[in-house]
């Protein structure tokens, strides 16, 4: 319940500050540009949103750290974190509140891309299964990126470092699957197992595999749990 109160406060602050009006348009314009202008969408002439679901995981590696960078780093820098930690709210509730707030912003960003499939469905026989899968996959992938971004943000007081650290980690997990042919063979199965991109690609094909869902959910849980632990550890400093 406390987490939800914090989440509501976070969402409200996103739309009170310019964040939502900078980050969201950047995501929406870049996605629209990439899928419908830079890609030969009409030349290829296929009723599919595959280009969007190929581009979104990459743009998320920039977009998500931009949301999470301020969540704890800014609170630490301004000294608000110490005040927050004195509230009668558990560390996990605080982390969950911040997470759900950011997750709602991510959801809003994806909601605003719904005109993409609607427009494509109007000019072709769109299979909604892979579209549903793609959106579910993006929510899971975005959630995992958010959890990582939160962890990095909680570990530093500098927003720039939080952004770069979050981006580096998210990007590394994103390209892990693409780098398989380049890494030492012994590493390949491990990289394949933790590759966000490969896991997401399965769901975006329209197949919701329990293994992929469990992977993303456990990545979110692990990220949030570690963030809560980082905050707990701060109490003892």
């Amino acid at each position: 319940m406390k987490a939800l109160t914090i989440a509501r406060r976070e969402v409200s602050s996103y739309f009170d500050l310019p964040i939502a009006y900078v980050v969201l348009p950047a995501f929406l314009i870049l996605s629209g540009l990439y899928v419908f202008v830079l890609q030969p969408f009409f030349l290829v002439g296929r009723t599919t949103l595959r280009p969007f679901f190929e581009f979104a995981p990459f743009i998320f590696t920039l977009f998500v750290p931009a949301i999470t960078m301020r969540l704890f780093a800014e609170e630490r820098r301004s000294g608000n974190l110490e005040v927050l930690l004195t509230w009668p709210v558990g560390d996990l509730s605080l982390v969950l509140g911040k997470f759900f707030g950011a997750f709602a912003l991510l959801g809003a960003a994806l909601l605003l891309t719904l005109p993409f499939p609607l427009a494509v469905a109007a000019i072709g026989d769109l299979d909604w299964g892979p579209v549903l899968g793609g959106y579910l996959g993006l929510m899971l992938l975005g959630g995992a990126y958010l959890a990582i971004g939160l962890l990095v943000s909680a570990a530093t007081r500098n927003q720039i470092i939080a952004f770069i650290g979050g981006f580096a980690l998210c990007f590394a997990l994103y390209v892990a699957g693409k780098a398989l042919p380049l890494v030492p063979p012994a590493l390949a199965p491990w990289l394949e197992a933790i590759s966000f991109d490969l896991r997401f690609a399965g769901i975006a094909r329209g197949v919701v595999d329990l293994r992929d869902v469990v992977f993303f959910v456990s990545a979110i849980a692990l990220g949030l749990g570690c963030t809560a632990e980082v905050l707990t550890a701060r109490r003892w400093r």
Partner: peptide, 17 residues
């Protein structure tokens, strides 16, 4: 489709804001 989908969602967001 091309320009509506590139600018439309952002315009919608700004309008709601």
């Amino acid at each position: 489709v091309r320009y509506g989908l590139t600018i439309g969602p952002t315009a919608l967001l700004l309008l709601l804001g």
